[in-house]
Design a protein around this nucleic acid. Structure first.
Lengths: 221, 221
DNA sequence: CGCTAATCTAGAACAAGTTTCAGACTTGAT
DNA sequence: ATCAAGTCTGAAACTTGTTCTAGATTAGCG
């Protein structure tokens, strides 16, 4: 079925007519790219950020070092792309069984906790991806932004919103901030799993505050 | 006995804020340490994280490379210590002119925005410190924790709280998460200064939610 | 097919963080 | 003053991310 567009991490950022922005990849190139991402995720799963060594990735994916750098201009780019990959997969998984909570806040918290549990199964991989994400400098902005958009989409999905208000988008941004930072404190051993849950639940309360005026917060108490 | 006391885990220095009184450091050692931190901040101010090169720090502070590593076991340790230094200074500054807002939320937001403005004056230094902070792994946990405690203290100061409830501490943790993560998005050019302000103001609204029930939220609306 | 440009490969080379080592220097105790 | 233990220095070595080069392959095109 040709309808299967390349959902790949290669941003479908078309649009520019004149710009040679998105080169169509050959079969073999697409295969190389997949091998590289697979090797990256595999090495990351073993030993986290430090275990993803460019020479090893190149060898594992049977590609020359120079080629690896042609596909991903830095280790950070590679790991952020790996995260894009995983995020897509997770978004798909989450879509299949939407959260059950009554309020938007509950659903978002449930969704994030589900994602958190998935990360706990591969803590080293989580380490590599999250560290890369927060360490990324300006040269990786487009890719990091893409990850951010994907995360936003997941949260908005959980909220069940079509077109959020600016206020709601602010709340979502703050939730993302908390999510990333809480993950970091967990990964570096400074916060327990329980504490991450509390932080997520706490920040999700913000959602109730941003409801369009007519609605009253669906809180408990 | 030992000559110049063991500097090894110089970092495990008690939680004492700015106590040059108790450390087991010689005069000359204290001076070395200060030279190193000064060189670190200076180089960071010029070119950010990348400009802080251990060989340069060593040369600038007139210390052998091996000695630098004895004082700060890694570049990350060094930069986190630099941040501790700067934070102390900032806490002192903030104490002198406490924020004016009526509500706790307003005061915290004002305080963080003041800190943010200070960081904007030395964006490269901010880059070096914040990147180091979020990139730090478990081996730097004690030092990062110290920075976190200091930040918590600043926020609680702004709230005017003596003994916060667990709920309030959760809110403060979420505010810190947002603060760090928002800084990162700003440093990497993915968020504007205005957006950081909005995020800070948004998350500070959480404070009103965590008041012990007796008290009415001090906002109007 | 034959050509040209782009891509890929192997490997060396470079850069910066980190480690190691022998020898000179300090310090505090005897 | 002397000595043992701990510290500092200078320099080299090692590690891993990144860049560069020359030659082999591949892709697209007339």
């Amino acid at each position: 079925m040709p309808a299967e567009a390349k959902v790949n991490t290669v941003a479908k950022v078309e649009a520019r007519a004149a710009a040679p922005a998105s080169p169509p990849l050959t079969e073999r190139q697409e295969a190389r790219r997949r091998r590289i991402l697979h090797a990256s995720a595999q090495l990351a799963s073993r030993g986290g950020f430090d275990a993803v060594q460019m020479r090893e990735v190149a060898e594992s994916s049977q590609v020359a070092l120079g080629t690896l750098y042609r596909y991903f201009p830095s280790k950070i780019h590679l790991l952020v792309a790996t995260m894009q990959d995983q995020l897509e997969h997770m978004h798909g998984t989450l879509r299949k069984k939407p959260p059950q909570g009554e309020s938007a806040a509950e659903r978002v918290a449930e969704t994030l906790m589900r994602a958190f549990r998935a990360l706990q199964r591969e803590p080293h991989l989580a380490d590599a991806m999250v560290r890369a994400l927060t360490f990324a400098d300006r040269s990786v902005s487009p890719e990091v932004d893409q990850v951010s958009r994907q995360t936003t989409a997941i949260i908005l999905d959980a909220m069940g919103l079509e077109d959020p208000t600016p206020e709601q988008l602010s709340a979502v941004r703050v939730i993302e901030h908390t999510w990333h930072s809480a993950l970091i404190t967990w990964l570096s051993g400074r916060a327990s799993i329980a504490q991450v849950r509390i932080d997520i639940e706490t920040v999700c309360r913000l959602i109730a505050l941003t409801k369009p005026e007519g609605q009253k917060p669906e809180g408990q108490k």
